[in-house]
Design a protein around this nucleic acid. Structure first.
Lengths: 349, 349
DNA sequence: GCCAGGCGCTTAACCGATTAACTACCGAGA
DNA sequence: TCTCGGTAGTTAATCGGTTAAGCGCCTGGC
C-alpha cells in the first residue's frame, strides 16, 4: 500500500526524451540531438522524433539541461525601491517593458525582485547566480561608490549597468548624456530670459543625480544665472509639492524650475496654480522624462523626453551580447531631448 | 592543446557537496543531510560541514536539486499589456510590489514576462511550467470566457486568478467587490444631487469592466438617474481626455463622471478646466484607484481607494498556500472605499 | 582491393543533488 | 548471551538531459 501511495499518478508524469526514444526506437542521445538540431541524425529519424515529441507534448526539463552546463536563459533585475515609490514612477515600468521585449524575442526571461535596499538586492543577485537561475544581470539606481559594483565584478556575473560609465567600474555601462540635456535646457531657459532657475532633484547619492547637479551648477555659472538652491527629494509627488512650495515662498523666487521627474513636475504645477501663480507666465516648468501624464495636464509640460522603452531594449541587447560573447561594448543612448510645450515662456516683466 | 582549452578555468568551477565531502572526510549524502537539517548526522560532523561550506562559499545548485524533485521556488506572472500602456498605470507596479514582498519573505522569486497578448502569455506559462521554472502562477487581466483559464486548468499549474470568481473556473480567485464600490459611489453622487452621471470605463471584454458596467447600470436604475453613456477606453490619458471631451460636448452633459482609473480622471480634469468648467462646481469627478497622482492635482480627486499593495500580497499568500498544500481557499479582499476629496460637490443649479 | 573518412547511431560517463536501502556499532532489556 | 532499536554513517540508484568516445557501414579515391 505504501508503495502505491509513493507512486506518482500516471497523469502527473511528464514525458522525457527516454519516452520518445522508446517510441521511435532510437537512443536518448539521438532524440536529444534531433530536438536540438545537432548533426548526426538522419532527416527521417529527426522527423519521427519531432512527431513523437509533438504528440507526447514534450517539454524540455531545463533543470536537467542546466545540470549539464546549459544556459539558464534568464537575466536578473533587482529593483531597489521602497514599495511605496514604485507605483508612482512610470520610468521603471517602461524600462522593464523595453527589456522584456528584447529578452522575450530571444526566448530569455526576466527574473525580477523588488527589494527594499541595495544589500537585499545584492543578495538576490548572488542567489540567482549561485543557483544558476540567471546568466546575467541588469543594475539600476547606480549610487556613488556603489558597493554592488565591486561585488558583482568579483562574482563574475555578466552585468549591464544602467548608468554613467564613471560609476560602473569594469561592468558594461548603458547610459545617456544627462549633462548635455541639462545644458540644453538651461540654455533654452536663459534664452527665454530667465535669470533665476531652480532645480528640484531626486535622491542624493545616485550617480545621475549628482551628474545633473553638477551640470546644473556649471550651466548656471556659464550662463551667468543667479545661483539657486537645488532641493533633493525622494521623487514622490508629495516631496515635489513641498519643495515647490518652499521655493516659491523664498525671497527672490525662481521664475523657472527644472524637476527631476514628471510626477514632481505635475505636483509642482498644482502647487503653483494653488498659490495663484500662472504657468508659464509667472513660473516656467520643465519635467525630466516625458510621459502621457506630462501631456494631459494644463498647460502640457515642457519635458526632457527620451525613449525609455528603447533605453531598456538597448540595455537588454547589450546584456545578451555580453552573456553570449562574454564581452560587449558599452552603449551610449541618445541624450534626452528638450520638448517645449506650454509650461515654459519668457518670465513676466 | 585541445584538451587544455576544454578544461574549465579553475576559478570558474563552483564548489559542490562533493568538494565539501572530501574536505570533511564524509560522504556526499552526509553533507547533503547536514546542510538540510536532516537527521542521521552528528552535531560534530554537521558543524564541520557547515564550516567547510561557509569557507568554500558553497551555494546549492538548484538545477540538480530540482532534478531530484524539489520545488522551483518561483512563481510566474505574464503581464499582458502593450508596452506603451505599462508606464502609465501605477496599478501593476504596486501590485507587483505587494506580490514581491510576500514572495521574497518566503524566498520565492517572481518570473515576470511582459507580453503583447494573451496567447503569448499562455505560452510563457506553458514554458515556465514545462521547464519547472515555476511552482505556480498569477493570472491578471481576466477576460470574459478567458481561454487561459481552461488551458491552465488542464496544465495542472497551481494558479491564483486576480479577478472575480465568476470568471476563474476552478482556479483560485482573489478579488474585491467592485460592484459594491460602484453602488457606494453612485449613492454618494445621487445624494449630492447629481442626476446625470457618466462613466469612462476601461477595456471592454475584461471581467471587471463588465462587472462595473453592470453595477453602474443597475445603480442608475435603482437610484432613478438618467441613463448616461458608458465610454470604453484603453485606460490611457489620451483616450480619457477624448472621452471626456465627447461627454462634455454632448447635449445634456453629465454633471459627474466616474473614471475607471486615475490617469484618465486626471486627464478628464484637465479637459474640463480647459473647456472653462469648474471642478467640482460644474463637474464632479471620481477616480477609480487612488494614487499620489490623484492627490497632487487641484482639486485633489475623490477616489475609490484600495490597498493595491495588500491586494498583491494577499494574492501571493494565497498562491503560496496553493503551491504548498495543493489547495487554498479563494480570498475576497476589502471592497474599494470611497474617499471624498475636492473634486466632488453638489452640481451647480 | 585497401584505406580514409563521413554518416548515423550507440554506449558510457557525467552534471550535483536526493532518496532508498543497507551496514556497522553501541547500549539496553529479556 | 542474544536480540532489538536507535544512531551515524555508507553505497547505489535516480532525476533528465548532455557530451565524449566508439562502432559499423557505405562511399570514393588511388
Amino acid at each position: 500500500m505504501d508503495q502505491v501511495s509513493q507512486q506518482k499518478s500516471p497523469a502527473a508524469r511528464r514525458p522525457t526524451i527516454a519516452d520518445i526514444a522508446k517510441i521511435v526506437g532510437v537512443s536518448k542521445v539521438s532524440v536529444s540531438n534531433a530536438l536540438n538540431g545537432q548533426p548526426g541524425v538522419s532527416d527521417a529519424t529527426r522527423a519521427k522524433v519531432v512527431a513523437a515529441a509533438e504528440e507526447l507534448g514534450f517539454v524540455r526539463n531545463s533543470a536537467a539541461r542546466a545540470l549539464s552546463g546549459a544556459k539558464a536563459a534568464a537575466v536578473g533585475l533587482a529593483l531597489c525601491r521602497p514599495a511605496r515609490m514604485l507605483g508612482t514612477e512610470p520610468f521603471f515600468m517602461e524600462l522593464i517593458g523595453g527589456i522584456e521585449k528584447v529578452l522575450s524575442d530571444a526566448s530569455y526571461s526576466l527574473a525580477l525582485q523588488v527589494v527594499p535596499d541595495h544589500d537585499r538586492g545584492l543578495e538576490a543577485y548572488r542567489r540567482w547566480w549561485g543557483e544558476r537561475h540567471i546568466d546575467g544581470a541588469i543594475l539600476v539606481d547606480l549610487r556613488e561608490n556603489d558597493a554592488r559594483v565591486p561585488a558583482l565584478e568579483e562574482m563574475g556575473l555578466p552585468t549591464v549597468v544602467i548608468g554613467h560609465p564613471s560609476g560602473a567600474g569594469t561592468l558594461t555601462p548603458v547610459w545617456s548624456d544627462d549633462a548635455a540635456a541639462v545644458r540644453e535646457t538651461m540654455e533654452y531657459l536663459a534664452a527665454l530670459g530667465h535669470q533665476r532657475v531652480a532645480r528640484v532633484a531626486g535622491l542624493t547619492g545616485l550617480v545621475h543625480t549628482s551628474l545633473r547637479d553638477h551640470a546644473f551648477a556649471e550651466a548656471c555659472a556659464d550662463l551667468g544665472l543667479q545661483a539657486q538652491p537645488v532641493v533633493h527629494t525622494d521623487y514622490t509627488g508629495e516631496e515635489g509639492a513641498r519643495a515647490t512650495r518652499r521655493l516659491l515662498l523664498s525671497a527672490g523666487r525662481p521664475t523657472a524650475v527644472l524637476y527631476d521627474n514628471d510626477i514632481m513636475a505635475v505636483a509642482g504645477l498644482s502647487v503653483a496654480q494653488e498659490m495663484g501663480l500662472q504657468v508659464p507666465r509667472d513660473l516656467s516648468i520643465v519635467a525630466w522624462d516625458d510621459s502621457p501624464l506630462a501631456q494631459v495636464v494644463r498647460p502640457p509640460l515642457t519635458a526632457l523626453s527620451r525613449d525609455i522603452h528603447a533605453y531598456g531594449a538597448n540595455a537588454a541587447r547589450t546584456l545578451l551580447a555580453l552573456v553570449t560573447d562574454r564581452r560587449a561594448a558599452g552603449y551610449e543612448d541618445l541624450a534626452p531631448r528638450l520638448t517645449p510645450r506650454g509650461s515654459t515662456a519668457p518670465p513676466a516683466a
